[in-house]
Amino acid sequence: MEKRVTFKGIWLPLLLVAPQIVITAVFFFYPAGQAVWQSLFIPDPFGLSMQYVGLDNFRFLFDDPFYRASFVTTAVFSILVTAVSMGVALYLAVLADRLIKGSGTYRTLLIWPYAVAPAVAGVLWLFMFNTRVGVVTWYLGLLGYDWNHVLNDGEAMGLVVVASAWGRISYNFLFFLAGLQAIPRSVIEAAAIDGARFWTRFRTIVFPLLSPTTFFLLVVNIVYAFFETFGVIHTITSGGPQQATTILVYKVYSDGFVGQDLGSSAAQSVVLLVLVSILTIIQFRYIERRVHY
């Protein structure tokens, strides 16, 4: 798509794009290039010189059982976050869609957590499940369950999953509700007249028609779980216990800043870069398909 009518001039447009070019070059392309460059080197122990090692950093990385474990952790974590937040959101959206009046009120009530930062969400859930003062921990204790996410891997994972999914429900709810309300009423009413009960209608009509929304949310939520949940993990578990909740983004941070292993951290950045690109391509192909649909 091109504009038919344009203005003349060369210097003015260059001046107009200059701020964005400069900022993007300095804070985006240069660092991204540096990450790729550094991933091919190992600094000597005193940090005085860099030695070229080719792809050794990547070889070390994929030989490292902790890194491979982090891949599995990330997969488990993102699948759970996506499933929980989309499941709850779809359930609430289906209920709200059945109302003639008042779905707007529920939307206003449910929109809140979107505004709560992941790190703050982490603090809220940490407070409820705190091993010493947490109110949920205490009631679980009454029931005879000894909650301790500081020591128990599974409980730590469960807590970061719920805290991450919680803030995401609003977003998914908004898109699901919009998707549901876009389905022609006549189709659903025709099925109802033919005697299809709610579940049959949902399975055979509503859910298939909702699939573009579902697929879109699937990709967006996976991206969220990969990259935007750092705050939740840092506040609740700091990647522990024994790296049980160290997702890939957390590992880039802990190896690069805490461990000061720059070569490995750069290689990890490159791996993440490739993952983001794949997700982006999936998203764009999907949008393209939708346009032609």
Partner: peptide, 13 residues
């Protein structure tokens, strides 16, 4: 630049 979050390039940035 569309989708590369700052988290990915933190050390060089």
């Amino acid at each position: 630049t569309l989708m590369l979050p700052v988290e990915v390039r933190i050390v060089p940035t």
